[in-house]
């Protein structure tokens, strides 16, 4: 694991914000995970987090599912936690939909305790960022359903997905169609 220059590489359309669609799979529906980046083989810093064109192999009939949040509501935070010299990542994806209905309540009921793998994209597009790795799945950490009394209040269904240890990993593609 080498140290490399960072010389200001940015995307031309950098901005805050996430795309509204999030990809969510049940951890146990995944047959094979992409190989995690090899820390001894990287030739650039991005190689330590980039899964590139490798693929998730899902179990037969299983797939990633879409969850459509609201515009400018999904948010992501990754923090370095732990003692100096023993730092680790703690990642939190917030997914919010300004609605409350049977589909959302049912989704929370069915998935609140389910081990997950979750993918999301920044507004600039490109690769998905993945939370959840072999043995370290992502989980719903918090969730709430709010229906304020005032019509101007923010009605919403919200949940956070938390993963640990690894930073978010980048991958080119995810399947939203069943495996054969």
């Amino acid at each position: 694991m080498n140290l490399y220059d960072f010389v200001g590489e940015i995307e031309l359309e950098e901005s805050a914000g996430l795309q509204v669609e999030v990809a969510i799979a049940a951890y146990h529906d995944i047959e094979t995970f992409p190989d995690l980046p090899d820390l001894s083989a990287g030739t650039a810093s991005k190689d330590y987090v980039d899964l590139g064109a490798s693929a998730f192999v899902m179990k037969s009939t299983k797939q990633f599912h879409k969850f459509e949040g609201s515009l400018e509501k999904n948010a992501f935070s990754s923090q370095l936690v732990g003692a100096r010299g023993a730092k680790s990542f703690e990642n939190t994806l917030t997914i919010m939909k300004n609605a409350m209905n049977s589909h959302l309540c049912g989704w929370l009921r069915a998935n609140r305790n389910r081990p997950l793998v979750v993918g999301f994209k920044p507004l600039m597009g490109g690769q998905f960022l993945i939370l959840g790795t072999p043995g370290l799945w992502a989980e719903i950490d918090e969730g709430s359903i709010e229906v304020p009394g005032e019509v101007a209040g923010e009605k919403m269904t919200m949940f956070t997905v938390r993963s640990i240890f690894y930073p978010p990993l980048f991958i080119d593609a995810l399947p939203f169609t069943p495996a054969v």
Partner: peptide, 17 residues
């Protein structure tokens, strides 16, 4: 390969195979 031809998230956006 490995999936029913259908919707995929790609670097080019959502693509229906």
């Amino acid at each position: 390969v490995g999936i029913v031809p259908g919707l995929c998230g790609t670097k080019l956006g959502m693509v229906d195979l």
